[in-house]
Write a protein that binds this DNA or RNA. Structure first.
Lengths: 229, 229
DNA sequence: GCCTAATGTCTACACTGTAGGTACATTCAC
DNA sequence: GTGAATGTACCTACAGTGTAGACATTAGGC
């Protein structure tokens, strides 16, 4: 699969580098979850001594995790920024959603990883979306400070939606239905009247549609704020 | 600290129960972070054999984590629901924010914990806010299905904001300032013009204010959606 | 050739979650 | 009371984990 056959002499196991290690780690996490990522297992996958990873790729497990997150964010595809700012925001949202759904196991890293990593020290790749959105908003007429607030609201909502959607999403829909019904009927009707009535709606969840609706609400609010000044 | 001196005979170490264990675990996580929570260390704090925990409190570490999350959510204080629906939503938001800031180390559990726990199987305590907000929205005039969508948007935004705020928040503000300046000046001006200009605004972050602004945007959008049907 | 620096490999330590067994205490039926 | 049954406590053991440190091997420069 991987095996970037570097053309030096010591090509026996295929020379190791940071990129290869990180990609292997991402594969591992995608397939077997975050907990499956251990230095030893990673070494096993790469057919290398676990300690070799420390020399080439990372100073420790944490750094591997950070590397994975960065790798996933690098999958975000850039856009031409010629359309209306609202459609641009919409596109960005769907693009982030797309990438996150491709790597659901990595999402916890994305949302909680940068915790306690001060903004100034984050890798440039992580800051690009921020800069991009600031640009869009400022060109749309927001003042720089307002643009920052709006960015936070927008991105906050975005991450929130993605977390929501990942919770809603369950592998097997049929099992999901059974579980849901069982679970809901367990709840006392007097305490959870609305929730129990909404069982059918809970079952057909369309994440993309849901995201669009949320953004529409946000944009309506934003438009209003923009015109009121 | 804990030591609920139960009045039986074998009161030497003070009889163990699930509540005590969970509270001790929460303390541990609050003070030393999620990684510090191990069954062995928890046993040490409680002066019990680690294996005793398995008998009394939980089937494993995962269950302890779930218990912690539940415990934190139980700290949410209920409201009288007599005011305007918008003020109610605002209160709920601030209340959740308050509790999360009290237990920042637990937030990752709250946002990613219920992942892959189907909605129907979550503990009733976790579902109460959902039911509550559905009620508020339906009484405000939303149809049940719309109320569900709005709930998702609202809660998604809420969790997103909290994650954002926890990222912004750093222990020592002075160090924060130094780091930020250092970090931002490292970024090439041509690629990050807006971000570098916003350094001062990045420094004084008021989470409560920020949350309020976001909610205002949301509510403006919601009001518009509500009147358009 | 040899010297230096980089790289690979192995061992070892201090941890982790938790299955399984054993010794003790308490409780209940009679 | 006695005996059985049940619950509790504790220990040991196993298969993992991250990673520091020492050692062997190799590559490159001269």
């Amino acid at each position: 699969m991987e095996h970037a056959g570097n053309g030096r002499q010591k090509a026996r196991p295929g020379r190791l580098d940071r990129g290869i290690v990180m990609r292997a780690a991402l594969n591992l996490v995608d397939e077997h979850g975050l907990e499956a990522l251990s230095m030893r297992r990673l070494g096993q996958v790469l057919k290398r001594d676990p300690m070799a990873l420390y020399r080439h790729a990372a100073a420790g497990r944490k750094e591997v995790l950070a590397g994975i997150a960065e790798l996933v964010l690098d999958e975000l595809q850039p856009f031409a920024d010629d359309t209306h700012w609202q459609t641009q925001l919409r596109r960005i949202a769907h693009e982030l959603r797309r990438v996150c759904l491709l790597h659901p196991n990595v999402v916890p890293l994305l949302v909680t990883g940068p915790l306690s990593t001060p903004l100034g020290l984050r890798p440039a790749g992580t800051l690009k979306p921020l800069e991009q959105i600031l640009g869009i908003l400022i060109r749309a007429g927001f003042g720089p400070a307002d643009a920052l607030h709006v960015y936070r609201t927008f991105y906050g909502f975005l991450y929130g939606h993605i977390l929501n959607e990942l919770q809603e999403y369950v592998a097997d829909p049929e099992e999901n239905e059974a579980l849901l019904r069982l679970g809901l009927y367990r709840l006392p009707l007097r305490d959870f009247p609305h929730l129990r009535r909404l069982a059918p709606e809970l079952l057909d969840y369309d994440g993309s549609e849901e995201l669009d609706q949320g953004i529409s609400i946000l944009l309506a609010g934003l438009g209003q704020q923009l015109s009121h000044r």
